[in-house]
Design a protein around this nucleic acid. Structure first.
Lengths: 211, 211
DNA sequence: TATGAGAGTGAGTAATCACTCATGTAACTC
DNA sequence: GAGTTACATGAGTGATTACTCACTCTCATA
């Protein structure tokens, strides 16, 4: 794990043992799933007594949510930060394609260096309402508005078709996620030419939404 | 559940109680997931003694696999049956778009009437190697070859770009699955205009792969 | 009517689970 | 060096789990 995640970086108040717990939990849960990973296993891998886990996290689910929630923010937010949005309007990306490229590249690299966490997020999203709530909140409050702004901008420039933003977002997100899931989860061992695939993905999207 | 599934239809040898067990298992597992559903719960919902489950299925996982495996076949195979393939070459679908429409429509309706089973398949695919194996076998043996045939056919007709089939298949499957997952799982309660969405999906795909 | 087979039962079992708590220890404060 | 605080421990607990097994019931066949 090259990127040891905000969970660990942000809270500098974390005990060394606590860090080991989170590391072990990420490894085990991403490999075997939440329900197949017992707290005793996590403790063993972390080199810690089982009770120590519950000193830091009230419940096992609390541990999961603490681990997963920041991923949602970090996976969806940064590109939509002020810096990124202003780059769009300062014409740093002349064409929508350029924006797309920067976006996909950025998220691709993030996914690559946070694979175990992304896996956990995808796998457990279905079963834990707490995670779903966090996801919907993040997506509705940040991703959608920023997307809307950018789409409207390039629509006016005449680069995009006049489809509903919602439809466009769904198709773009679907295509990008689909590529990454295939790349990292379904066929991670294939000999991928990432740069070429990214460009093909962009061409595919532009064919579908551009004019 | 309008479509009570091959599992139930095929094996007419099934006991009434066994049918109840499978029904209860499908309901519960699709709602709460495999690991959150206990055999005692399934027995209770089915109106059956817990021991009865194990008279018919050696283990709990055996029950899951028996339920899920046929879905894989039924979700991917029928459209690629001889009838469908021959329709392609008899020019029943003059344009690739027409084929796409028939395909999406067909699979859309299948998903709609087998939602709980599809949910189980999607959710549990990640955790059970037995299911993964069945899936890869089915996909590699039937879906890919049939797709290749059809794509080559319409490529020669000059209707498709000269992208690698593999890439095209990935993008199309991704787009179609993404639409269905959004439609049935992420936002099932939205007021969807299905016919319009299907047509937009087709237009999006054609923009990306057509010429 | 006796026999045997298959379906169904439900109390029982060993294992495992998440979580608790009394105790221990180290470091810092006054 | 007494007191306080925070971190850490691991044996222990009650609940739950998947699965077993000795048994009953039903019914077709001999």
């Amino acid at each position: 794990m090259s990127d040891m995640m905000e969970t660990l970086r942000n809270h500098e108040k974390m005990t060394p043992k606590q860090i080991e717990i989170v590391k072990a939990a990420i490894e085990l849960i991403s490999e075997k799933g939440y329900y197949n990973t017992s707290t005793s296993e996590i403790a063993k891998r972390a080199g810690v007594a089982e009770g120590t886990i519950f000193r830091h996290y009230r419940t096992k689910k609390d541990l999961l949510v603490t681990i997963v929630t920041p991923v949602i923010t970090n996976f969806s937010a940064p590109v939509f930060a002020k810096k990124f949005v202003s780059q769009v309007f300062q014409n740093d990306y002349e064409h929508f394609e350029d924006l797309l490229y920067a976006f996909i590249k950025n998220r691709f690299e993030f996914a690559q260096s946070n694979l175990p966490l992304i896996k956990i997020l995808l796998q457990e999203l279905a079963f834990h309402p707490e995670i779903q709530t966090a996801y919907k909140k993040e997506f509705g409050a940040k991703v959608i508005p920023a997307f809307n702004q950018a789409l409207d901008f390039y629509k006016e420039k005449g680069e995009l078709q006049n489809l509903p933003n919602e439809t466009m977002i769904r198709m773009m997100v679907t295509t990008i996620l689909g590529f990454m899931i295939t790349r990292f989860i379904v066929q991670p061992d294939k000999a991928w030419d990432d740069e070429a695939e990214i460009n093909q993905t962009i061409a595919y999207i532009m064919g579908g939404v551009g004019r």
